[in-house]
Measured scan of single mutants.
Amino acid sequence: MQIFVKTLTGKTITLEVEPSDTIENVKAKIQDKEGIPPDQQRLIFNGKQLEDGRTLSDYNIQKDSTLHLVLR
Score class of each variant (00 low, 15 high):
Ile36Glu: 03
Leu71Val: 06
Gln2Glu: 11
Leu43Glu: 00
Asp39Phe: 13
Asn46Arg: 02
Arg54Tyr: 11
Ile61Ala: 09
Glu18His: 10
Leu69Thr: 03
Lys63Asn: 04
Leu56Thr: 11
Ala28His: 07
Asn25Pro: 04
Ser65Trp: 15
Leu8His: 13
Ile44Glu: 14
Glu16Phe: 05
Leu71Gln: 15
Ile36Ser: 02
Ser20Pro: 07
Glu16Ile: 10
Gln62Asn: 10
Tyr59Trp: 06
Tyr59Phe: 05
Lys63Glu: 10
Phe45Gln: 13
Thr7Ala: 11
Lys11Leu: 15
Phe45Ile: 07
Gly53Asn: 03
Val17Phe: 02
Thr66Gly: 08
Ser57Trp: 15
Ile3Ser: 00
Glu34Phe: 07
Lys11His: 08
Ala28Lys: 08
Lys6Phe: 11
Asp21Gly: 10
Ile36Arg: 06
Thr9Asn: 13
Pro38Asp: 12
Lys48Ala: 15
Leu8Gln: 09
Ala28Phe: 06
Glu24Tyr: 01
Asp21Lys: 12
Pro37Tyr: 06
Gly53Pro: 07
Gly10Asp: 13
Tyr59Pro: 00
Ile61Arg: 00
Thr55Glu: 03
Ile36Met: 13
Val26Lys: 00
Ile30Asp: 00
Ile13Gly: 03
Ile13Gln: 12
Ser20Lys: 05
Val5Met: 08
Ile44Arg: 14
Thr55Trp: 07
Arg72His: 12
Leu15Tyr: 02
Ala28Ile: 13
Leu71Pro: 04
Lys29Val: 01
Ile44Tyr: 11
Ser57Gln: 09
Lys48Val: 15
Ile13Trp: 10
Asp39Val: 04
Gly35Ile: 09
Asp32Trp: 10
Arg72Val: 04
Ile61Lys: 00
Phe45Tyr: 04
Gln2Ser: 03
Thr22Pro: 11
Ile36Lys: 08
Gln41His: 13
Leu67Ile: 10
Leu50Lys: 00
Lys11Met: 12
Leu43Trp: 04
Glu24Asp: 03
Arg42Val: 09
Thr55Gln: 14
Phe4His: 04
Ile13Met: 11
Glu18Trp: 08
Leu67Val: 05
Ile3Val: 04
Ile61Met: 15
Leu50Gln: 01
Leu15Arg: 00
Tyr59Asn: 07
Glu34Gly: 05
Pro19Gln: 07
Gln62Ser: 10
Asn25Phe: 09
Asn46Leu: 02
Leu67Gln: 01
Glu34Ser: 12
Ser65Val: 05
Thr14Ile: 07
Pro37Glu: 04
Ile44Gly: 02
Asn46Trp: 06
Ile13Asn: 05
Phe4Asp: 14
Thr14Phe: 12
Gly10Glu: 13
Glu16Trp: 02
Lys27Val: 15
Gln31Gly: 06
Asp21Ser: 13
Glu24Ser: 05
Leu71Thr: 11
Val5Phe: 09
Lys33His: 11
Asp64Met: 04
His68Thr: 06
Lys11Ser: 11
Leu8Trp: 06
Thr55Ser: 13
Ser57Tyr: 09
Gly53Leu: 06
Gln40Met: 12
Asn46Asp: 15
Gly47Gln: 12
Asp32Ile: 05
Thr7Lys: 04
Asp52Ala: 04
Thr22Met: 07
Thr14Ser: 09
Lys6Pro: 05
Val17Ile: 11
Ile61Asn: 00
Asp32His: 11
Gln2Val: 13
Gly47Pro: 01
